[in-house]
Amino acid sequence: MMEINNLDVKIKDSEKMILNNFSLKINDGEVHAIMGPNGAGKSTLSKTIMGHYKYEICNGNIIFDGNDVSKLDVSERAKNGIFLCMQDPTVIEGVSNSEFLRTARAECSGEKVNLYSFIKDMETFTKRLSLDNNMLHRSLNFGFSGGEKKKNEILQMLFLKPKFIILDELDSGLDVDSLKIVCENINEYLKENPNVSVLIITHYTRVLEYIRPDYVHVLSNGKIQKTGGYDLALKIEKSGYSMLGNDANE
């Protein structure tokens, strides 16, 4: 279970507060979506949960599976099972996808990765995601299209088997066919792992058509202004944030 309690977050070396007294509880197996206008704090929330170096927690905490993870460094949070599918995955020249994945799995599990099972897993996952198997030998995200980068994020997710997944603007850079493939793979993973919970950060309902949320929250001015079901997302798509009043429309 992920519990975010009374979180105040600011940009480091700045007085600007992004999240104000933000609270959210996500039970195991639940899918939550956060929508909100530009600058509402959606990406700040996802990066703060992961421990991004640019943000500072001033108050509150993040409890995951009973442990306060807000003081842990980024890799420890990942080892606890938190996975951030990034909006714009970083390009790393000189480090191959294969080396990166094997190191990540070994670090998370504390065991050396068996080469045979790694190759078999990669054959399965690249096929499922319609990715060229040769991408494993290329530098991480180097020369990848926007769609390949996002698919690579999901490949990493399938391989590392996280317990809590944050999807930050999953649909950006993905064409309709790729979005469908990516979402089908996430749904398959959730079906195989019913206790895994998901936090979807999105502007549009496109991704929610494929991954149906149990709850939709509207974030504005650093806190949740309204909560509802999928129908709330549809209303926002139709009428914009103005329908929620001034608080939700900066």
Binding site: M50, D73, S75, R77, F83, T103, L160
Partner: peptide
């Protein structure tokens, strides 16, 4: 470093890989 660590790779190991 953030990207690598977000996949569970410790800072020290990430720097070695880089």
């Amino acid at each position: 470093l953030f990207y690598m660590m977000s996949r569970g790779i410790s800072r020290q190991v990430a720097i070695r890989l880089l």
